[in-house]
Design a protein around this nucleic acid. Structure first.
Lengths: 194, 194
DNA sequence: ACCTGAACACCGTTCAAGT
DNA sequence: ACCTGAACACCGTTCAAGT
């Protein structure tokens, strides 16, 4: 029994899992390499064996967050909701995925799943609409998640008292449905091609 | 002639203007209080006379960025483009406005202008659609702006060689038009109501 | 293969004190 | 009214060296 500083070794996966758990506890702003290292009982410099930079670590986390959205197409709206819920599953998840987008990791998976769902519904321009829906979902989820957190910590002007984040599900559904082209059901008359 | 360290005094406005110019030069990640102070030939602590925190300064910058979009309604698509272009006018402008949104500064103005444009076009649910379009524009602009910068510094996987950010204007117009409900122009044949 | 120890060049923020 | 000087508690990253 030597309870202190036993030489536990880590790999890329265990570091990422710890970082993801810490993200959920402290939020993106407080997710420092030094905090992650402390949680692993390791020096900060040890993390650079597993990841070349903090940016690379964050990109890996973003990838893990979106990886949970299922492949099989189950309707555009259901797919968009699955993506949103994956982002909501971790604190600041939406902001992390959004700000990591340039590296084309997790969001590429999300976009391809959306495009597939659109194709299955015979939507016109499934590629463009997939991109548009992803942009909308990321923007919406980031804003809503930020607002939720600001509310719960009483940091915002409190415009109205009651509705905080109420009606936002309505905005989400309206947005996704409009962007999908809403000609879905096989019985609906098709529109003219552009 | 005492060219060095002459006692130039600043107010809130001059600090914000300097910070905004610096943002455009170095980007959001490198916009530190110490850098802003150095540009003003002032100690970092001097900034805290004008702004209570960095967050407050950033919120002020976000407000200035969106303040440039005109009030008079000139169509939903034109309004959305004006917002996007205001975000593009400064490096990382979209990311800054998006991440400042919880404080409800600049984005409130953008949203109200959008809602007005929707009302002028007799759109149904102008409030909800205004919110949805703002979310889409912020998400879209943030992603495009990030990608533009990643491209120009050759830091991304380079999926295709040619089209970088090509077709994104198409995605933007498609998204805004779909979200607006597109029953607008008097001469265009209206589609069947849902 | 994985980690330590020490260093480098930075951060945001506070606060007494100056003018 | 606006700023300095000094301090506090942090950052990401590098690199030789250990095991």
């Amino acid at each position: 029994m030597s309870p202190e500083h036993n030489p536990v070794r880590h790999d890329r996966d265990s570091v990422a899992r710890s970082a993801l758990a810490l993200l959920d506890e402290v939020g993106l702003a407080d997710l420092s390499m030094r905090r992650i290292a402390a949680r692993l009982d390791v020096q900060p410099s040890a993390l650079y064996w597993h990841f070349a930079s903090k940016q690379e670590l964050l990109a890996d986390l973003a990838d893990r967050i979106t990886a949970s959205v299922p492949e099989g197409s189950s309707g555009v709206l259901a797919t968009a909701r699955a993506i949103r819920d994956a982002l909501f599953a971790y604190r600041d998840g939406a902001e992390l995925v959004l700000s990591t987008y340039a590296l084309q990791l997790g969001s590429a998976h999300a976009q391809s799943v959306l495009t597939e769902a659109l194709r299955a519904q015979n939507a016109v321009d499934p590629e463009d609409r997939g991109a548009a829906i992803l942009h909308f979902v990321l923007g919406h989820a980031t804003l809503v998640q930020q607002r939720m957190h600001a509310d719960s910590h009483g940091a915002l002007p409190s415009t109205a008292e009651v509705d905080v984040t109420a009606g936002l599900d309505r905005v989400f559904d309206l947005g996704v449905t409009a962007l999908a082209g809403e000609l879905t059901a096989p019985t609906t008359p098709p529109r003219a091609r552009a």
